[in-house]
Nucleic acid binder design. Structure first.
Lengths: 196, 196
DNA sequence: GTCTATACTATGATAGAC
DNA sequence: GTCTATCATAGTATAGAC
């Protein structure tokens, strides 16, 4: 819908979207105030409703779209580093664990934190979050297919992996360590062995 | 800390805790207002700060404690219905999927919705949520141990199952169907086969 | 594109009567 | 134990000047 990839880098609009994404990930939808977005983005105070006439919901919508692109690309790039799906996915989880420990960007779970809160009250955002999960799911499924798994196997296994990782992130955040992700990584070979 | 099991059934205090638990599950911490809690609980308007002098945080704290008891008991009861851990856990997930489809009580993911939002801003509540996950984890681990899995295997597998189920719930809520849980259930035997 | 000022509503919380 | 009235603050959103 928006041409965010064309020419909007480093603009006020762009900073607002990025800041909103980070704050949503940290504090959820209700917990993220427009005042705080303006403060932390350093954006001019008067420009928010100029760039986002529909207000908070539009801002959140575009922030979620941005997160979708970023995370999907991160997954695809990481998976591309190994031919074997088992190695690739295992390595992706180790990468994620490393990021969780080191990078404050990964403090907070991206989409889950939003969708859990708004799933019953905002269908437009919920539907967008559904597409985000679908996009991640597809990235895992494609990798599995390329490794020789059938379409159906790939769909089921990718769904499982997606759920495992997200659940692990929730528990990591709660415990404040990356152990759950490391445990998941070790389960991957058990799950992905062919010819049960 | 509180003697909620002794004599507080059907009192105003009790209704406030129950309503708060449901609303937290639906709308998160920031999204749940004290006014709405009072309205939906039908509790007398003036009694909130009498029963909960520390306000919203205390109310949330006790609601989380209540959820911990309820869900842990639900898990244990369900797992007790089959001797074999594989059957028991698989059946538990099918039960959860059925509840998800039918019972509005399971609309919303209990603890995850809170902890994702407050993990960086409220250590007291975060720590309590950690104990809740630990309690669920323990229920699964005990079942696995009773089926002959080693302590270490049981710990890892229970962690994985706990994460899978929670991730699946997040995706179920987003998609508004129980398919992800059904997929998880079918993965359980693959994961739990001994002698990899 | 950005500014200030402001409207309106909701929030969590407290005080004092009953 | 519960009531009403009220507080200060923060929330989203709008209008009009520049």
């Amino acid at each position: 819908m928006t041409s965010s990839l064309v020419k909007s880098n480093n603009t006020t609009r762009n900073k607002l979207i990025e800041t909103t994404g980070k704050l949503l990930q940290l504090h959820g939808y209700s917990g993220t105030g427009l005042n705080e977005i303006i403060k932390q983005s350093g954006a001019p105070k008067g420009s928010l409703y100029y760039h986002f006439p529909e207000g908070k919901e539009q801002l959140a919508y575009e922030a979620i779209e941005r997160t979708k692109e970023n995370v999907t690309n991160f997954i695809k790039d990481s998976l591309a580093r190994y031919d074997d799906p088992i190695e690739a996915i295992q390595n992706f989880i180790y990468d994620s664990a490393k990021r969780f420990e080191a990078d404050s960007y990964f403090n907070g779970v991206p989409i889950a934190n939003i969708v859990l809160e708004i799933s019953k009250t905002n269908d437009r955002l919920r539907e967008l979050c559904r597409k985000v999960f679908e996009s991640w799911h597809e990235a895992f499924a494609d990798k599995l297919k390329s490794g020789g798994y059938s379409d159906e196997e790939s769909w089921d296994l990718a769904m499982t992996i997606n759920a495992m990782i997200q659940g692990a992130f929730v528990i990591c955040l709660t415990r404040q360590d990356s152990k759950p992700l490391l445990v998941m990584a070790e389960q991957i070979p058990v799950m992905l062995i062919k010819g049960k």
